[in-house]
Simulated assay, not measured.
Amino acid sequence: MLTFLLYTIVALIANACLVRILYISIQPGKWLDKLLNWQQRLQKWDLQGKTFLVKAGGYCELCFSHFITFISFWCYVLVCKVVIGFWLTAGIDNIFLKVAVNIIWYLVYISVGTNIALFFISNPLKTKQN
């Protein structure tokens, strides 16, 4: 269980770092923007009314953080199942309890992961310099 919790902490921190790197990289003139014309894609999707793609693609910091954290969660599940061969519900026999624990763990991971990632993108504690 301790190994599982350590993997969870590492996954949350790695997710936040990845979100920050990706978010900075898609900004105008940065390397992913230049490579993939990311800002042009966002503008094109915006004109086409594809709100989900626009927000999750980087126009909304919260939506972007949430989208990457969602993908990160499923990678985290895969790593836990394959690498350490353990998941939170391993010792639970009741199917309803397993489902409830999985839903709660998903909500906790996504909530914490999104907020940490958002904090990494837009640090609210950063003081403005004049």
Rank of each mutant, 00 (worst) to 15 (best):
C75K: 03
L97A: 10
F52V: 15
L32W: 04
L118I: 02
W38L: 13
C63T: 05
W31C: 11
G113W: 00
F70N: 01
V79H: 07
L47M: 09
L36V: 01
N130P: 03
V108S: 08
K126F: 07
S111D: 06
Y7H: 11
A56C: 14
N37C: 14
V77P: 03
V19S: 01
S25L: 12
L125W: 02
F52P: 11
F70P: 05
W45P: 08
K98C: 09
L32Q: 12
W74D: 02
D46M: 08
K30V: 04
M1V: 11
S111L: 07
L35E: 03
V77Y: 10
V82C: 04
L97N: 10
G91Q: 00
C75F: 10
W45H: 07
T89F: 05
K50R: 12
D46N: 15
V82E: 05
K98Y: 02
V10N: 08
T3C: 01
C75Q: 02
Q129C: 12
T127H: 01
V19K: 02
T114E: 06
N94G: 04
W87Y: 14
N15S: 13
R41K: 12
I26Y: 08
L88M: 08
Q43Y: 13
I21L: 13
S65L: 03
L125R: 00
L32T: 09
N102D: 07
D93Q: 08
Q39L: 07
I21K: 06
T8C: 08
K128D: 05
K126V: 04
S111T: 15
Q43F: 15
F73V: 03
A100P: 11
L62T: 12
N15E: 04
K128C: 05
W87A: 05
Q40M: 10
G29C: 07
A56G: 06
T51A: 09
I26V: 10
N37D: 13
K55T: 13
L42S: 02
V112T: 08
Y76C: 05
F86R: 06
V77G: 02
P124V: 00
I9Y: 03
F4K: 10
F120I: 00
I9A: 14
I13W: 02
S25P: 06
I9F: 12
G58T: 13
T114H: 02
A14E: 07
K44T: 09
L53P: 03
L118V: 05
N15K: 03
D46A: 15
S111R: 01
N15D: 13
